[in-house]
Amino acid sequence: MTTTVTLAASMRGGTKDYGHGDAAVRALDGIDVDIATAEFTAIMGPSGSGKSTLLHTLAGLDRLTAGQSWIGETEISALSEDKITQVRRDKIGFVFQAFNLIPSLSAKENITLPLDISGRDIDPAWFDEIIGILGLGDRLTHLPAELSGGQQQRVAVARALVARPELIFADEPSGNLDSRSGAELLGFMRRAVKEFGQTIAMVTHDPTAASYSDRVLFLADGRIVDEMREPTADAVLDRMKQMGH
């Protein structure tokens, strides 16, 4: 592992167990991982391999059973719930697979929600730029229920970007979208990394989606089994086939 690049997030010996006794499941099994800044990292692996769990523990949504994890310089595995909430609020953005938006707020209000919560001002230029690129200009006053699935996901991405978090985590953001909407969304995420230096870590099942990233981590049975830089869809597909996916 290189130590020259600055790290947005990292984990050492990350272990996560669910359940007790006979029903115990080890979702993460001693993971070491680094997420470099200004890089688009994709996480892949068979269903049940621990991708979502890795993402959640890295982001501080869930706690590790053993091991340590950092966001930037802050060791979040040692922080209280309140402090972790603060770190999430100030440094992290999220895009989930579904149910990303508060139903009672309009698209615009959803996008600015993280800023409203932390009491920061909106940067109008940055806001307009995001809205423009995502093509949401004429949908801002709509409630989530009045938006298509793809539009909802774009609103979620806009929300993740607007506060300029140090790191964005996305769990299968394009999983519910058709291939064109998915491609648009991923293209935009890639632009955010390349043009604005945004750091993104994304879980995906789709080799095409993974090909938008700079680096792919392969997970199996709670361990990182391989890594690929500058991936192409075909190379990723081959690798997945080898893993018996």
Partner: peptide, 15 residues
Amino acid sequence: REFGLLRAIGVSGRQ
């Protein structure tokens, strides 16, 4: 889920 989402993006329990 709505509350969980708010918690995920940084709203504290107290809030």
